[in-house]
Simulated scan of single mutants.
Amino acid sequence: MEMSLSRRTAAEFLGTFWLVLGGCGSAVLAAAYPRLGIGFLGVALAFGLSVLTMAYAVGHISGAHFNPAVTIGLMVGGRFPARDLLPYVLAQVAGAIVAAGILYFIASGSAGFALSDGFASNGYGAHSPGGYSLFASLVAEIVLTFGFVMVFLGATDLRAPIGFAPIPIGLALTLVHLIGIPVTNVSVNPARSTGPALFVGGWALSQLWLFWLAPLAGGALAGVLYPLLVGARPVRATVAPRSTV
């Protein structure tokens, strides 16, 4: 049964909130914790687990996009109605901003916290963890988003095993972060990038354009190529464990 738009956007808000709180929270609060920090691997796992867990929780409501690039990819691929694009994206961005606000409040409780440390914002050039150039960062974000959205499209295809989609999607996001954290801190998600950038301001806002442009381009490319790869477009599927609506 099709859920109302209000319920679906509420689920997208909640899912994106959890993604940003879990993923960015692990980067800000736990990545470099003295002696017992979780490091890049832990942050990558946190992003993947946040998507996996919330996809099982609300995937049957909204499809568990939690990411404008995923929504664009599904729309371009003919599996999501264009009329719902803006409400989904607004809900995702709102969830990311609220999560970043709560994370800022928590992190500010430590005397050693400073927004100048980056607050898990995405960046290129001087603000890339590894000093990667704008062009290298652009290519990385397009390609990594393309791969992630391809996995999403394949895992939610009705021809794939039903009920397991959150697992490959979560693992794909983990893999994306293992590859890309040194390059840009990894976006592949404009909403995830927007939340922290609004609090950091300055350079983070001035570079935010790339973390909208590149993921949306990568997601749209996946939406174009996936139907060409697999043939006729299937009936729309979700990541829900028991639903194929």
Rank of each mutant, 00 (worst) to 15 (best):
L213V: 09
L175Y: 09
G195P: 11
V139M: 13
N189K: 03
G170S: 04
T184A: 03
I179Q: 07
M150W: 11
F152I: 15
V143S: 09
G201T: 10
G109E: 05
L216T: 01
V188D: 00
W203R: 09
G218K: 12
H127P: 05
G154F: 10
G180I: 03
G112F: 10
I167A: 12
S137G: 05
G131A: 07
S110T: 13
L138Y: 11
V143G: 00
L144Q: 00
V143K: 01
L115Q: 01
A172L: 01
V186E: 02
S121A: 15
V151W: 09
L178I: 08
G202H: 14
P182I: 00
F105I: 15
L173K: 00
S137I: 04
L153T: 00
L115K: 13
F211C: 06
L198N: 00
P129A: 05
G195W: 08
S193H: 05
S187Y: 01
G125H: 04
L158M: 14
V139E: 04
F113P: 13
A165Y: 11
F199Q: 11
G125K: 13
F148Q: 04
V183H: 06
V149S: 04
V186I: 07
S121R: 06
G170A: 12
A214E: 01
L153Y: 03
A111T: 15
F113Y: 12
H127V: 07
L216W: 05
L216Q: 02
L138C: 03
I142G: 05
L216R: 09
A214I: 04
S128D: 07
L115C: 09
L208G: 01
A126Y: 12
M150F: 13
A120C: 13
L115R: 12
F113D: 07
V143I: 14
Y132N: 03
L198I: 13
A214N: 07
G147L: 13
A214P: 09
T194N: 12
S206A: 15
L216I: 12
T145W: 04
L144I: 06
S116F: 11
M150Q: 13
P168I: 11
G170I: 01
E141H: 00
L216S: 08
S133P: 10
T184H: 00
W212H: 03
T174Y: 00
V143C: 10
G219C: 09
L216A: 06
P182V: 07
E141M: 07
I167E: 03
A155P: 02
V143D: 04
Y132H: 13
G130Y: 00
L208S: 05
A204C: 13
F199G: 12
S110R: 14
L175M: 07
S137D: 03
T156Y: 10
V183N: 04
D117S: 15
A107R: 02
L134F: 15
A204G: 13
A204K: 08
V143T: 06
L173G: 01
P196C: 11
H127Y: 14
F146R: 06
P215Q: 06
L138V: 09
F146E: 12
G130T: 01
L205S: 09
T194Q: 10
G123D: 08
S193Y: 03
L144C: 05
L205G: 08
T156H: 08
A114G: 13
G130N: 08
A172N: 09
G118F: 10
Y132T: 09
G170F: 07
F146Y: 15
